[in-house]
């Protein structure tokens, strides 16, 4: 076996983290993206900018402030104590929360684009045929935006896998809890264990390539469908 037990543990943890984050962001990002695609209020610009913030903030800076916020004296820390779930730093769910925030634009923006491309017409048709807004969302919007959902999920998953700065800042590098693959590679490099670093990096690279290949090699049928408005 090329990889050590702790390497495999790190990869497994990474996949678990990325899957959890992708699932949660589908639940959170979909209504946000729908609102952004449909709203015409001025608040839309503000919310859109907030969602995009993680794109511009350096991950280590973001991680530092998330650490402050989640710490026992931070607002999130206060909240988690009141809710009785304990402190979040150095826990898996702390990483999940940070990653959800950090990967938010990768879920919301492709979805928003997909929703905007659908336009008003299919919704008007569905309403005139007796579909409630929720019904129309699931029977028309979701199928039409399917390529958007796929893109958003793959990007979110891949981005969480590749995330490093935020995890390093708030994770505490605990095996099985917060030592994800990217951190593990970094540790190998820092400890001059280049051979192990190379092997793990190769695994990550191949994984990412396959994921992205899946994304880009897909038939670009989304535009054709949504163009029919």
């Amino acid at each position: 076996m090329l990889l050590t037990g702790s390497d495999i543990q790190a990869i497994w943890l990474t996949i678990k983290l990325a899957s959890t984050v992708t699932f949660l962001l589908l639940l959170i990002g979909t209504p946000v993206a729908w609102w952004l695609a449909r709203s015409q209020t001025r608040l839309k610009g503000v919310v859109g900018a907030v969602v995009a913030l993680p794109l511009v903030l350096p991950p280590s800076v973001l991680g530092f402030y998330l650490l402050l916020a989640m710490g026992p004296n931070g607002p999130v820390g206060h909240l988690t104590r009141i809710l009785g779930v304990g402190a979040l730093p150095f826990t898996f769910w702390g990483l999940v929360l940070a990653s959800v925030f950090y990967s938010l634009p990768f879920m919301v923006q492709p979805l928003q684009n997909a929703f905007e491309a659908i336009g008003e017409r299919p919704l008007e048709v569905a309403a005139s045929l007796g579909a409630s807004p929720l019904d129309a969302f699931f029977s028309v919007v979701v199928p039409l935006a399917r390529p958007g959902f796929l893109t958003a999920s793959i990007l979110t998953f891949a981005h969480t896998v590749g995330e490093f700065g935020v995890v390093l800042m708030i994770g505490g590098n605990i095996p099985g809890v917060s030592r994800v693959a990217s951190v593990q590679i970094y540790d190998h490099v820092e400890a001059l264990e280049y051979g192990q670093a190379h092997r793990m990096a190769a695994v990550m690279l191949i994984f990412s390539f396959v994921v992205l290949l899946g994304l880009y090699a897909r038939r670009p049928d989304s535009l054709k469908m949504t163009g029919r408005g």
Binding site: R121, P122, E124, V125, V140, P143, L144, R146, K224, M225, R228, G229
Partner: peptide, 9 residues
Amino acid sequence: FQQHSLFPH
């Protein structure tokens, strides 16, 4: 409608 109102899926 005038056109393009069928659900493509």
